[in-house]
């Protein structure tokens, strides 16, 4: 009997070492250790033994069972590990193959830049307002101190829709509307679409976009204007950017200034972009004309203010170095997806 057990042990352990799949292992388990397995059968067969041999024999069989169970479990572990290793090896990918992409959507470049501007000015406490694109002569011109005989009111520059109605030529038209509706302190920007009778070419478009800014409060000075525009320039062109004022003329501001910033291309040393001057003209601005304030019911003796107008299209074409403004309105997918 003992020899029989020994032979079974030898045979079983030998066989176990050759098994390589979970299925074979399971069959092995059932065959030897299952309810009707060989080892179980041995236990059952103990009844035929003399009573005094039984404990000893039972002990030996259970020992064998325990031994086989341990060996099986070890074998199972190593088979699982091997299989896993094999699977992982088989699943190796060429990681240089391209990824699966979801097609991206995006904003029009003009609105990407506009959102940046809104962010900058909103954080400085400017409310964002909107105005109509079809304006009356009053808000587009008269309220802005552009008298009837001013050349800007010519049909040649302005698209008219009726006697008194036109497509606004400047977002400044929102100034008077705002000042009539709100009392100082006023701190607004008005982004929007504007229209001028310019033939289409690489740098001109009859439809373009501006962001008008307006501040009215007690004690607002030209230096405050510079402070705000410097902040804006630092955000847009970089913290090293310097801002310079040059005298200019707009009917709705007095004093009026052209605002230059140091050329971001050469840092002010002079290059092709800035035509060697080191400066780039970015916008027009000035102190709100007292007549404009008074026309909106704001006492120019008590309040002062400044206004500025940023050309969004030019800001966009300069930022992305877009050579032709027409690209912005042509909407070729290959252009739009670059931003």
């Amino acid at each position: 009997m003992k020899e029989k057990l020994e032979a079974l042990r030898e045979k079983a352990l030998g066989e176990l070492a050759t098994l390589e799949t979970p299925k074979e292992l399971e069959e092995f388990r059932v065959r030897l250790l299952g309810k009707k397995g060989e080892v179980t059968e041995l236990l059952r067969g103990m009844g035929a033994l003399p009573a005094e041999d039984r404990p000893k024999m039972g002990q030996l069989i259970n020992q064998l069972r325990g031994e086989l169970e341990t060996a099986l479990s070890e074998r199972e572990q190593s088979v699982t590990a091997l299989l896993k290793e094999k699977r992982l090896k088989e699943e190796t990918l060429d990681v240089t193959l391209p990824g699966t992409k979801t097609k991206e959507g995006g904003l029009h470049p003009l609105n990407i830049v506009l959102n940046d501007l809104i962010d900058i000015f909103q954080s400085m406490g400017f409310d964002v307002v909107d105005g109509p694109e079809v304006e009356t002569e009053h808000y587009c011109f008269e309220a802005l101190n552009v008298p009837k005989d001013h050349p800007a009111r010519d049909m040649q520059d302005t698209f008219y829709l009726a006697e008194n109605l036109l497509l606004r030529t400047q977002t400044s038209a929102a100034q008077a509307r705002t000042m009539e509706q709100r009392k100082p302190p006023i701190r607004i920007i008005c982004p929007g679409r504007v229209f001028r009778a310019d033939e289409v070419d690489a740098t001109h478009s009859p439809v373009f976009h501006q962001v008008e800014g307006l501040v009215v409060d007690k004690g607002i000075t030209l230096c405050d204007l510079k402070g705000v525009l410097e902040q804006f320039a630092h955000e847009i062109y970089g913290p090293e950017t310097e801002v310079k004022f040059r005298p200019s003329f707009f009917p709705f501001t007095e004093p009026s200034v052209e605002v230059d910033v140091t050329c971001s291309e050469c840092g002010g040393k002079g290059c092709r972009v800035c035509k060697g001057t080191g400066w780039i003209e970015i916008l027009g601005a000035g102190m709100v004309h007292p007549r404009v304030l008074a026309g909106c019911g704001i006492d120019p003796e008590e309040y002062t203010g400044f206004a500025f107008g940023i050309g969004l299209d030019r800001l966009t074409t300069t930022r992305y170095k877009i050579s032709d403004i027409r690209l912005l309105f042509e909407n070729d997918q290959r252009f739009l997806e670059q931003f």
């Binding site: 909103q122 409310d127 964002v128 909107d130 302190p185 510079k226 005298p247």
Partner: peptide, 25 residues
């Protein structure tokens, strides 16, 4: 006065007033 005196005399000053984040319609 200013254009003859020189706009380089204009320095930047931060605007004063209550600190508010701008509103959006």
């Amino acid at each position: 006065v200013m254009r003859v005196y020189g706009y380089d005399h204009i320095v930047s000053t931060p605007m004063t007033g209550s600190i508010v984040r701008g509103k959006i319609l």
